[in-house]
Amino acid sequence: MANLSVSICGVQLKNPVIAASGTFGFGREFNGLYDIGTIGGVSTKGLTLEPRLGNPVPRIAESRGVILNAVGLQNPGVEHFIENDLDWLKATGTCVIANVAGKTLDDYKGICERLDGRVDMIELNISCPNVKSGGMAFGIKPETVEEVTRVAKSGAKNTPLIVKLSPNVESIVSNAKAAERGGADCISLINTLTGMAIDIERRKPIIANNTGGVSGAGVKPIAVRMVYEASQAVKIPVIGMGGITCAEDAIEFLMAGATAVQVGTANFTDPYAMPKIIKGLNDWCDKHGVANVTELTGTLQLNQK
């Protein structure tokens, strides 16, 4: 048995496998299939200060090897989460990461203040449109990445803050550094890539929102490259995700520089994906004489060109 436990910003995780935000709700449904206390952590559905109804349907489409989604942050609001789900989720024994979103800097500060000290970590979804800058996402430009991080951190004084980077940007390295400068304790990446899928009979996009976020197996090489580049650029820990389907995929991310990984779309393809990945990690480590999974992080050796 390899030691799979990892520590991120002082928070101890049983193993480095975390459920990705938006694919796992608050964990209740998957707990009907297996004990979610056995997974490293759960990043909750993106929470906002007020409840949100989200986008019209259809909200999802499939393209070979990937999916597209535009749920539009439907969620019951942070108060409802604190009142109805938080204690239950904590009691499962998994690490609770509250994924949060907002339309203004005040929203981000407010929601972080509300969750500060109540959850193990806060993950900032900065791929949301910024109302003040004409709807451009906070996560696009390094300046706004740094600003939103700083403001959020002023709300999350006692809770490690993870900034989740968008891949739809000019430079992932600049944005990773900007998050670090803004006071992020950790970064996670990648959020979804913006895409479109068309129903050619109707000559219309399949998703009601027209565009959707692309995720799943097919995005993995892009995600691995970005995790590598970002982890080279910052000193804070990195959580990697994007297309992880099996233990071998997770190991790629660890070697590229991640301390832990998140699994999203794979939960749809196989609801037992995460327990299988955890078991696979252990087996791989045992077979390769790796005593602690932390030994894998950042061990990638580039080819000499």
Partner: peptide
């Protein structure tokens, strides 16, 4: 009928509108 993600209630992909304004 609606397009689905998880199929078990976790992802909020497959919603419909209720007459009480909820999903």
């Amino acid at each position: 009928e609606e397009r689905m993600g998880c199929g078990i209630g976790a992802c909020l992909v497959c919603v419909c509108d209720l007459t009480n304004g909820k999903k």
